[in-house]
Design a protein around this nucleic acid. Sequence first.
DNA 1: AGCTACTCCTGGTAGC
DNA 2: TGCTACCAGGAGTAGC
Length: 281
Amino acid sequence: MPELPEVETVARLIRPSLEGRGITGAHVSWERTLGGVSRRVFHERVKGTRIDGVRRRAKFIVFDLSRGGRPAGGLVGHLRMTGRMHVEDAELEPSPYCRVRLELDDGRVFHFIDVRKFGRLEYHEDPEERLADLGPEPLEDEFTADWLLRELRARKRMLKPLLLDQSFVAGLGNIYVDESLHASKLHPLRRSDTVRPQAARRLWSAIRETLAEAIEREGSSFDTFYRTPEGQPGSYQHQFRVYGRAGKACGECGRGITRIVVAQRGTHVCRQCQRAPRIRA
DNA sequence: AGCTACTCCTGGTAGC
DNA sequence: TGCTACCAGGAGTAGC
C-alpha cells in the first residue's frame, strides 16, 4: 500500500521523464480511474498541454499542466493500494492492468497501472481545491511537536484511526501508523486526549524519523508494489518493527507481536511495549 | 463528535 | 488438482 514514502519515491522516479514534456494523446481503458470525468472530456483537457511540474502532496501525485504558457489545471493521481506509475518507451508491451496511458511528445508513454482499480488519475481545473481538506505534511516545518500535542488533545479519537485520517495529518497509512505507534510506545486504541506531552513528542519524532528513513530507503516493496523496469524496489520493509510481523518477536522486548483489528484495519502491536488503555467497549 | 458498516475491485490463498 | 469462499485495504459516504 503506497504511503507517503512510496509516493515520494514514485514522484522522484517519474519526475525527470515528465517535467517539461508535452502530452500528445490519452487513452483510458477504465473510465472510473478518471474519478467522474468522461474519457472525452479528459482527453480534451489534457491533450496539447505541457507538464510543468510533478509534485507530491500527502499520498497524491500532482502534474501541473499549462497550455500555451498559461496554467491549465492539473492531474491529481492517487495509487491507493495497487496503483503504479511508469514512463516507458512506446514499443514496450503494455501491462494488461494499464488503466490510463498518456502519450508524450518525446515518443515515450506514461502508464497508470492498477490491478484493483481503486487508484485515480483525475483532471482538475484547480488541483488545490481537490487537496484542500488535507492536514499538514508530517515532514514539513508546519508539523511541530507542539501542534501535534495540541491537536491530539483537541480530539477524543483513538490514535490509529486519527493518524490514518488524512485531514489530521497527511500521508500516513496503515504501515507507518503501526510503525510510528510502536516506536513511540503508544497503543493504537489509546484516546488522543489522554496522551501526555512527553508521549506526544515521542510520537511526533517517531513519525518524522520513520517516514524520513523510509524515503531514504525508497519506501517498502511488496509483491503488489514494485518498481519500474528502470528502478530497484525499496527496502524499508526490512526495517519493520511490527507491521506484518504477527507472531514474531518484538525487537525491543522479545515478546510476540499481536495482530488485532482496529477501525477495520489489520493492526500490529507489542502488548508489552504498547500498554493497552483501560476498558474500552 | 466519532464510531461502524458498506462500497469499490481482483489476485492470492486457505480450506475442502 | 480444482473449486469456492474469503481476505486485504485507502478513502468516501451513510447512518447511528
